[in-house]
Design a protein around this nucleic acid. Structure first.
Lengths: 279, 279
DNA sequence: AGATCGATCTCGACA
DNA sequence: TGTCGAGGTCGATCT
């Protein structure tokens, strides 16, 4: 059996199951009426409400509500989970040091506690990252500009590493900053930093070009680039279906599924059941 | 009943429960053997494994493994969840547009499906943010430097808003950039951008000071500041227990808990009970 | 440990 | 909707 669940356990029972799940190294979910307190790099407090607590064997703790992608409270991997019954309530505390941080979840009632044995790969390789864009450009330097010759990637300077460093057809050094999506002022500043670092290296009179490569730039970024004498070249990120041979792209036709259920953004509830937030 | 759970359901049964949970606006967890495919801003593929899928009524989808704080795959709020049985497997697909993105979770087996009615506040106010630091400094401008006079916060420039703008005791304009933690080169560049924007506004010969306020700076950042003629002042962020009156700090004495369980980082073996000191 | 930067960043605020 | 910057950012890589 790869999942153990108890419904509306007593706090004692919940604690018992938690202990067992900790020992097994399970992924744990606890759903119930609880308060949440955090103190560490910042501090926060959350009153009573029904929420979902996720405890991972690597020390991660996540408190999720019914909204948002990000947990309302959390503790990073490497923390230590502790559970105890106190004042008639189940308390789960997740602690770490450097920095000292504590997450405290106090359950008034536990509706359900589940422990699951996770398996399979958890590291996934994503295509379409900035590194992929860089590799694509290394294969096709002319996509940057005719005659561009790449010399180094992640070339170190004393203000950080340069994404791509090379020379143009006339032998001038070119600092290239890559971004996989539309960029704002910060990317322009970043490029400027690197160009000035190279100028200092090569001698203040050196003719060093700075080239920002991205799908597009904002107006402000364009202005900043112009003022600093930097250039911009529009390059689309490698699309997932055009060249990256993604298998599985075949079954796009699913109009005739056996059965279908749908839900999402606009609470398209049948009987107009409203959020029912009981605070 | 605020939670509905089915164990090892058939795909049909799972689909039925999903539909009902969608309609109720529940928070849903699905644990089972599945593959995960994502295609959108980037693309990824994940082979068979036992993982936990979280579906929120706001359109969020999260796939969690037993490691890491971040989900291995996800879909942001505003997506639409669709479920179907196809090829004898339960498929949950979460789709959004602008940008077009699809997350596909195909379950070979569903170990457990739960639907929970969440309630209570989900917005929490954090103390210790940059805004808190700013307000503390507005109350005590001398903590910045003697005679500093704040004039505006979030003062707009054509390269972005300045955290805090004011004048020093000699009437010179001062651009202040606040950071709640140790800063690197990017913050120095950011401040430099703002200072140069004010210099352009005031006339190129204007005597404008730039002041970075943070707990500390890295070496490179310090060098960048020096080269750009910018200043740094060390200010600790308002600590959570010194002034922010965090209630609940009273029950620090809990050495005699009824019962205790512990787990965390270093998969501490089953027997050999852990130190069990919480706090 | 600290430093630096990318990220399917996410999120909120504001124009 | 786009732009911009903060974040308890997280996570990876390198020193």
């Amino acid at each position: 059996m790869t999942v153990t669940t108890v419904h509306q356990p007593t706090h004692r029972e919940a604690l018992w199951e938690l202990e067992a799940a900790f020992d097994r190294g399970d992924l744990i979910t606890v759903f119930g009426h609880c308060t949440v307190e955090y103190d560490g790099r910042a501090a926060s407090s959350l009153g009573l409400g029904r929420r979902l607590l996720l405890l991972k064997p690597d020390g991660t703790a996540l408190v999720h509500t019914d909204e948002q992608q990000q947990p309302v409270n959390w503790q990073p991997p490497g923390s230590e989970h502790h559970a105890a019954v106190r004042d008639g309530r189940l308390r789960v505390r997740s602690v770490r040091s450097s920095p000292d941080e504590t997450l405290d979840v106090r359950f008034e009632t536990v509706e359900q506690l589940s422990a699951m044995a996770v398996s399979g790969r958890r590291d996934l390789s994503v295509t379409g990252s900035e590194a992929d864009l860089r590799n694509a450009l290394l294969d096709q330097p002319d996509a940057i500009e005719a005659g561009f010759e790449p010399l180094a990637t992640e070339r170190p300077t004393d203000v950080g590493p340069i994404d791509l460093f090379g020379r143009d057809s006339e032998g001038r050094p070119v600092v290239v900053e890559l971004k996989r999506r539309r960029v704002g002022p910060s990317a322009a500043s970043q490029l400027q930093r690197y160009v000035e670092a190279i100028r200092r290296e090569e001698g203040d009179d050196a003719d060093v070009r700075g080239l920002l490569i991205a799908p597009s730039v904002t107006d402000r970024a364009r202005r900043l680039l112009a003022e600093a004498g930097l250039e911009f070249a529009a390059v689309e990120p490698p699309s997932s279906d055009s060249d990256a041979g993604d298998a599985d792209a075949a079954d796009a036709t699913d109009a005739n599924d056996d059965s279908v259920a749908a839900a999402g953004d606009d609470a398209s509830g049948p009987s107009a059941a409203e959020p029912a937030n009981d605070e």
